[in-house]
Computed example of a mutant assay.
Amino acid sequence: MALLRTVPVDGSPETVGGLVTALRDAIAGGPAVLPVGPGETGVAGDPGEGAAVVIATSGSTGTAKHVVLSAAALQASAHATAERIGGPARWLLALPAQHVAGVQVVVRSLLAGAPPVVQDLRTGFRTDAFAAATHALGTARRCTSLVPTQLGRLLDAGGAALDALHSYAAVLVGGAALPAQLHERAVADGVAVVTTYGMSETAGGCVYDGVPLAGVRVDLEDGGRIRLGGPTLADGYLGDPRLTAAAFADGWFRTGDLGRWRDGRLEVLGRADDMIITGGENVAPAAVERVLTAQDGVTAACVVGVPDAEWGQVVAAAVVLDGALDPAFAERLRGAVRAELGRAAVPRVLRAVPRIPLRGIGKPDRAATARLITAEDAPAPNSTASHPRTG
């Protein structure tokens, strides 16, 4: 039986250092590693020969899964990333080390010949600590991986934090969709942003800026369901052959996401089970979010379907704004969605919120957002409503 070694990490450089050592051993053929964060527990099981890491992930369903990644898959991903972003680098780890994105920062660092510099996350992500950790990288070529929330905070902080961000040859951004306005702002400010798409089952990001990494295959099934293949695929789910057989077949992993090709690049439309069906028409929340966040004054958005007696569901949006959500601004937002996506996609309800509820390392919590939007039956001062086919 192959061994599985549980390694607790709490965001401190000391515990991450222990994980770095364990991962180095695992890649060299030692026991597979299960990194666990605060409050998480280990599991028993045989990950199989060649396994290097087991990643615990609840995904969007909340059901615990444990993804088994081989040393070969991790190294294929790390080598393909280095090739895409211009070569090896010193890496800053500013993400939780128990998630696949954090593990891959460690693997890329080890293959480049030096462990990562670790930002202490025990008290959360702080922009001043990011600047200090960046300085500790020295004069080497620098790379890091962030989620959109972290990128936005660094841009807002300015000063030493923004100077540090400018010093990176590549800033990989993933974990959640990058709002269009934030992306444009970062690029305009000279940040070397690289958008990434992937998941634990693909050893992290495997499509960069809409283009698959070397060796990665992308296929769209009828209806737009994304399938991914290539050397970065996981071996399956620990102790769950039924779930493994349902998701992995013939060298492909069938994701829960919908996508389309646009100008030769993969555009991810969001999860299939997030699709809103209103009056018999399908609306992709991610598409509406992209339009909303591209408008001046909107810093973030989360779109969900809420029940409606006449239409089945109607489109509802929680938005984070620079100012107030007055009727004129609400109509401008609706007009932008109508012009880009059609009448069915126009949000029936728009509610201004101070922040979008998040889960994991930065993904929008759609269930919590729906509860937030429907918490009050009547429109409040920060909420506007319109008829779904006239609005």
Rank of each mutant, 00 (worst) to 15 (best):
V67K: 05
R227C: 13
G323E: 14
S77D: 04
L154R: 06
S383C: 14
R185S: 11
V353R: 11
R351P: 03
V43D: 02
A186C: 09
L228D: 07
V53N: 08
Y237Q: 04
R185W: 07
L292P: 11
E281Q: 14
L155E: 06
A203Q: 02
A136E: 15
A78D: 00
G210N: 04
G210V: 01
S200G: 09
A385L: 15
T127R: 01
G204V: 00
A140Y: 03
D46R: 04
R24G: 11
Q295W: 02
G236Q: 10
R265T: 12
G256M: 04
P38L: 10
L228W: 02
D296T: 12
A164R: 09
I373Y: 04
H99P: 00
P212I: 10
L111G: 10
R371I: 00
R343Q: 15
A249Q: 15
R371M: 10
Y237R: 08
M275L: 15
F125R: 13
A2E: 11
T21S: 15
T196M: 00
G280S: 09
L350P: 06
V303P: 12
R227D: 05
L292G: 12
G323I: 00
E340T: 15
R265L: 04
A203K: 05
D25Q: 14
Y237S: 11
I85Q: 09
V211S: 05
R359H: 12
D296M: 01
P31D: 11
S200C: 08
P388K: 10
V43G: 12
A64E: 13
E49C: 02
V353E: 14
G159F: 03
A94K: 00
E201A: 08
A22P: 08
L92D: 12
E83P: 02
A101W: 00
G102H: 04
G239R: 08
A318L: 12
G29F: 05
A169K: 01
N282A: 15
A272P: 00
R5H: 14
S200K: 01
G152I: 07
D209W: 00
R24K: 12
R90Q: 09
G215A: 07
S58W: 01
L172K: 00
A32M: 01
Y168W: 12
R343W: 02
